[in-house]
Amino acid sequence: MKIVTICGAGIGSSGILKVNAERVLAKLDIEADVVAADIGSVRAVAEDAQVILTSAEFVDAIGPTFADVIVIVNHFDQQELAEKLERALG
């Protein structure tokens, strides 16, 4: 499975989301490839992704996609990530 995290530069918040998503997925025993990217490359990077993790600000810019778009409010809250990922993947 492929999960893409999206932010403005592909560096800060998407990097935090990637790191914490990987930790949560390991705890949930789910295997996935998590890739951080910037909003400009979302179409190319997320083409084959099942899930896109991002902030509310980028939902419109991501546009139509086959992936589940999950909005994360607190990027450090692993419980929020776990609940939202489980709901999307379960």
Partner: peptide, 14 residues
Amino acid sequence: EHGPYVVIAPGLAL
């Protein structure tokens, strides 16, 4: 350009 998404947790901006 992208909005206040850098506020990634309550009280914290990156």
